[in-house]
Nucleic acid binder design. Sequence first.
DNA 1: TCTGATCATTGAAACGCTTCAATAACGAAT
DNA 2: ATTCGTTATTGAAGCGTTTCAATGATCAGA
Lengths: 335, 335
Amino acid sequence: MASSIRDVAREAGVSVGTVSNVLNRPEKVSPATVERVLAAIERLGFVRNDAARQLRVGRSRSIGMVVLDTRNPFFTDVAHGAQAQALSDGYTVLLGGSDEDSSREVALLDLFEEQRVAGLLISPVHTDLSRLWRLREAGTPVVLVDRGSSDHSFSSVSVDDVEGGRIAAQHLVDIGRSRIGFIGGPLAIEQVAQRLEGAQAVVSKYRGVALTVFQPQALTVLEGRRIGEEIVAMPAATRPDALFAANDLLALGVIQALVMTGSLRVPEDIALVGYDDIDFAGAAVVPLSSVRQPATEIGATAVKLLMHEADGDRGPEQVVFQPTLVSRASTLGYE
Amino acid sequence: MASSIRDVAREAGVSVGTVSNVLNRPEKVSPATVERVLAAIERLGFVRNDAARQLRVGRSRSIGMVVLDTRNPFFTDVAHGAQAQALSDGYTVLLGGSDEDSSREVALLDLFEEQRVAGLLISPVHTDLSRLWRLREAGTPVVLVDRGSSDHSFSSVSVDDVEGGRIAAQHLVDIGRSRIGFIGGPLAIEQVAQRLEGAQAVVSKYRGVALTVFQPQALTVLEGRRIGEEIVAMPAATRPDALFAANDLLALGVIQALVMTGSLRVPEDIALVGYDDIDFAGAAVVPLSSVRQPATEIGATAVKLLMHEADGDRGPEQVVFQPTLVSRASTLGYE
DNA sequence: TCTGATCATTGAAACGCTTCAATAACGAAT
DNA sequence: ATTCGTTATTGAAGCGTTTCAATGATCAGA
């Protein structure tokens, strides 16, 4: 069986307290003793039991993170940024994906709560935040990721999604398109709803420009392809001449559908803007214009806010990044 | 503070043993009592402390997973498959990325060992497996993922990488190419070395066909782009007329470089095969031919083998999947 | 009425760690 | 020689579970 701190103490001829000190505050122990204990640890192949440590200390050194989709490169990048920052603060990030399903989300929260995570980063499916309130009441700091806290009750780090929708739609209008299709859903996802809102705001300013909404079941390549096929099948008169997809996964799926059937050209017949500017966007059949968000920075910032909350010095803070448009071939851009 | 099982016991007027039974074997407790306890739990907002449970039980309900790169969609898919399978067995997967760096790998192993994970899935950077031996000796089942166990001492689930290299190279020869470039590295990564080995085996069978090796620092889009630029800069006479990239990230990077400079056409001037067939491969500028591996199935199988090891019935098992070629435009294929 | 057998509940003993008040050891200062 | 301060070490308490032998309650059968 795995040896315990007690075995190490016996082996090194010291007390358990001393072994614990060697592990946690070696500067409090005389060098000779440290050496002796380390040798014993080595000899026994001792590995500290984190469960026991945690039980005693009350909190874990892990941060729970819930994102909408672990397979979406955008969230992978956010998580990567969070990981790196957490590491430098001595924490570990546990990543879980809700797959945009609120029951999976609840299951993850249960799990993290049982683990007594040091904090929670979440990109919630729900608009209902009561569960998060409870968690926070119970002493677990919570930071909303990629989603603002409208009433400022939570710390959050987000990107201005309304503005993102605005610049995407404006760009399409600027290149002369008038029948704009928005692809995104479920609309219950705040980010999607806000990007739509931004697009609508622009469209309503121009007479002669109309917006049609296509609602996929999920924000995936597969669903994008399905919607793309749907659009190809529309009569040319009503078919959009420009599309704004709520994320790049959808956009890439749409491109696949358009290009594979070969009947419609991008951007000549249909221009296309995506969202997130994932690494793969620039390498697409038709390099994809996209609204860029600073993914890793979002993750890193979220962890920083979490640390602030944990310190308890200040109240909730909101950080809002501004999105930028990256224009490529799919909207006549160069690059 | 968070309430304990003791508080629940008091609130419900029963003993702690009974509360524990309600939590773990409700069928052993009379319905009336179950109800009373559940009500008390609800009233107090009790959440079981997993650290204490784990300390008592000795093992956690988590499986540690170490992959080479959490941002590579291939591994994301493998992890997803593992997650799903683990879930149905009542486990959780903790995912960590080594970034192909063995010190990060060691740090992750330390972490997982301290957590007393129920098992370990690993796609190791190292060829040296002694650390894993020790872990296994200590009672933690280990399964190698995407990597065979040459001496059959570990359970493993892998794909025949030599065969993968073979079919990729054979395909390039079949479409009439003779100056083949292999892009992959570091060669210390077994998968890369084996794919190269397979390619070499094919090339050596044909006189007049030569293989050049390009070694990126890492298997990323960025490195692919760098190598791609290097290739563009080569004199036409010695420049490869076909490339085989050790994974799709590299291949997409290469494509970006080739297409952006605009001087070389794919596949006319240079044909290109990738590896993994990630979702984005089919949506690339020039849809990418690729060697497909059954990613989610690999993950799911790995968890199954882990469960077998844990049961201890049988010895180590090796599962080897066969890769298949998906031919697209980048090698004159259709689709 | 009594005896077992069955079922539900109890309560205390770990699990392995950290923490902290108490003790020991040892010079320095008186 | 005595006292004081400093530094190093000790050992026991307690974190919140699970588990299991022991106890109590209930009931069928004789």
